[in-house]
């Protein structure tokens, strides 16, 4: 299903803005959804993929260990001030907000949780929207929290591209529904359709 978008948009990669970074927000059902999306991304993908997963404030996140073995791209958690490197999947570290500065370095913060979440999808999306403008691609996946809907709106208002998992195919449809209801997404699809969209739209995505 393709929802008509408010701004000019083409599925044709020639006409879409160049994608400079991808941000992904996901919560309940994250492991299953990411297990489809992330391993499908080729090592040559010429952008950073920055992922916020709501995880309880544990001592150490297991996400990197879990996905490193399965993904072609590099998988890491950033430290503060680290440049947002392309070709890498970056997981937000537990118990910090993850932001992107305009000079395209990572920044961390311990501010209060947003919608009970730290890291927060809104915080990442809003800062990345500011840093990347129309070059940002935001992917909203299964989540039972409303954290991420304000962020998706901000991505849209900065001219970025918003892609949402089809709610009926999401383990938790709340966030996908909220973002669709805002009328902002450029594409709504299954996980496999989203993979295809990314490979077709992003430099280095297709062989």
């Amino acid at each position: 299903m393709v929802i008509p978008s408010p701004g000019p948009l083409s599925r044709d990669a020639e006409l879409s803005p160049r994608i400079g970074a991808i941000v992904v927000g996901v919560s309940a059902g994250a492991i299953n959804a990411l297990s489809v999306l992330l391993p499908a991304l080729p090592r040559e993908l010429a952008v950073a993929v920055i992922v916020v997963v709501h995880v309880s404030a544990g001592r150490r996140s297991l996400l990197c260990d879990l996905f490193r073995a399965r993904c072609a791209m590099r998988v890491r958690e950033p430290v503060d001030k680290e440049p947002v490197g392309a070709g890498t999947i970056w997981f937000a570290p537990p118990d910090y907000h993850l932001l992107v500065e305009r000079e395209r370095t990572f920044a961390l913060s311990l501010e209060a949780p947003v919608h009970f979440s730290r890291p927060s999808i809104d915080v990442l999306f809003e800062s990345a929207a500011d840093a990347y403008g129309s070059e940002l691609l935001a992917i909203v996946l299964t989540s039972a929290s409303c954290d991420g809907s304000a962020g998706a709106l901000s991505v849209r208002s900065h001219g970025g591209t918003v892609v949402v998992q089809e709610p009926d195919t999401a383990e938790a449809p709340l966030l996908p529904r909220l973002v669709i209801a805002q009328g902002s997404p450029h594409k709504v699809g299954t996980l496999l359709e989203i993979c295809d969209f990314v490979r077709a739209t992003v430099e280095g995505g297709a062989p």
Binding site: H97, L99, E101, R102, A107, E111, S127, D130, A131
Partner: peptide
């Protein structure tokens, strides 16, 4: 101060 989080605050 780092601008992204300062703007939020």
């Amino acid at each position: 101060y780092a601008r992204a989080s300062l703007r939020r605050r």
